[in-house]
Amino acid sequence: MATLTDQMLSTAVGKVSVRRGGTGRPVVYLHSATGEGPGFGLLEDLSDSFDVIAPMFPGFGESEGLDAVDDMEDAAFHVLDVLDVLGLERPALVGLSLGAWMAAEVATRWPDRLSALVLVNPVGLRVDGAPIGEIFGRDPDELAADLIADEQHPIRQAARMMSAAAESKQEIPFELVKPLLQSLAATAKVGWDPYLHDPKLAKRLHRITAPTLVVRGAEDRLVPASHGDAYASAIPGARRADVAAAGHLLGLEQPAQLAALIRDFLGQ
């Protein structure tokens, strides 16, 4: 298994951290609002087959520059900057949830800048009658249940502890809540209003030319199945795949299965 290492990258909005490892075809991974990075099995798995590049979005981890990002359009341009600074001509783009939305925004604007697109439980669209669940202001335990199917997953356990602490009016140490506050603030910047979608995205999806795979966790309780369908039917030639026993944060719950799907799709 290749070792992933972190580097700081200078971009127009500020320094952002990028986790990179492996050799082969470049695969850029765009994380969800959870800010998955260090210790994330999917990246390590993929780095056996690919040159895996996982930038942290401004406001997540060590990445700076959130003040210069106001909305999803700024976010898309930031991703383009990252590709440019790294000299990545046509990488494959893989995104989970918020990251998948970002990848779709990049792919509609600059279809020639990617060689393949993998959208895992993407947000970004508004489907009438099938709203995306609330992520802001939720009880941690309840939110985690919407995000992860497996009750014993470490994130579910941590969320239960946070809810119990709040219930018993314990003070939660600032250092523990700080990363959560930062990632939620960053997510709010791009997804508060319109709520986790871009009203213009649907009519632009036809512009995507890269081979596209839309992956859905069969037990995703945050984003209704119709969202994946909407992406798959609007992007020319897009394929669909479902992963069993996986909720919204599919990549954290079934990293090996997702890695296998991606490897298969990218022809490795």
């Binding site: 802001f136 202001g137 003070e171 600032f174 506050l181 939620l184 603030a185 960053a186 709010a188 508060w192």
Partner: peptide, 21 residues
């Protein structure tokens, strides 16, 4: 007392934790 994301800066949040209970 709901705190929407990004509404309070981190330094103020930390300062206001004292006494929040």
């Amino acid at each position: 007392n709901i705190q929407p994301p990004g509404y309070t800066t981190l330094r103020s949040y930390e300062s206001m934790l004292k006494g929040a209970n």
